[in-house]
Amino acid sequence: MLLRVENLGKQYAISKSFFSNKETIVQALDNINFELREGTILGVLGETGSGKTTLAKLIVKLLEPNNGKIIYNFDNFPRNVQMVFQNPFSSLNPMMKIKDILKEPFLIHHLDNGTDTDSKLRILLEKVNLSYDCLKHHPDEFSGGQRQRIAIARAIAIEPKVLVCDEPTASLDLSVQAQILNLFIKLKEELGLSYIFISHNIEVISFIADEVLILYEGKPVERGLKNKVFNNPLHPYTKILLSSDIGELQKTSAQDNYSGCKFYTNCKFSSDICKQMTPEEIKTEEGHYVSCHILK
């Protein structure tokens, strides 16, 4: 076990506004538990706004949790945890040349020895299918997908233990996406790299993940071994998410003022208890956890 997340929670405060004159609290993440095992990929799925980026930022310590904790079972924290951010347009320092951006991790962690680093950069660029020529340019001279690949090159440069990837291939064409996903698999097998891999693309998660975690409005709904969850989805939300017929989910405005299951207003299996109580996570079989009242 490389990393363990226990009862993790994060809130944001939204200051008062035009419509309300008191500060409101957004519970972006609540009661998240999982383990990341060495050499595995945990795929994180969930609708937009469900807390995925918040989770990623907590793991790389860009945010502090309000509840719970993350236990890192390895040394050398910043070196061994790298992140690829969701927005390639704001994740690279516009003042630096690509050469310096890619060299930086070697310098910071004292792994730079001149000529050797140069050939490493060459290999890195090949891996993400960018030309050597790009080193002399600045980030704003690149397309979205090119920037994303530069960010990926930077994150894998010094071979961390954990790579946190937030939608790493969302801005790539199918062929380059396939090359990057293959690269991730190779790094996992050859170096034992582990990943927290956030994606909206179910086919991508299905291809790459060993385990999955599915979030709904900041709460875990279902998690476990990918094959168990994908072959036998149990939570009503997961079932809709994985089915090819997704037309049926009409998101109604979520009302924050009830204490039950966040999926209650959308769920066709719901009963009174769902509105009153948050379901606890239960283990339905080895490596398969679900948070839903109907499974009791």
């Binding site: 299918n129 960018l130 030309s131 020529d133 064409d173 199918l174 062929s175 380059v176 996406q177 396939a178 090359q179 996903l181 293959n182 698999i185 693309n201 179910i202 086919e203 991508v204 299905s206 291809f207």
Partner: peptide, 26 residues
């Protein structure tokens, strides 16, 4: 390009890609 689409039923270890380098406009 269309052959690079990941599919749920595909059980291969690696995805199809287009061999060679991405076109370099320069």
């Amino acid at each position: 390009l269309l052959k690079c689409l990941p599919k749920k039923e595909n059980k291969d270890k690696f995805l199809n890609t287009i061999e060679g380098n991405v076109a370099d406009l320069s």
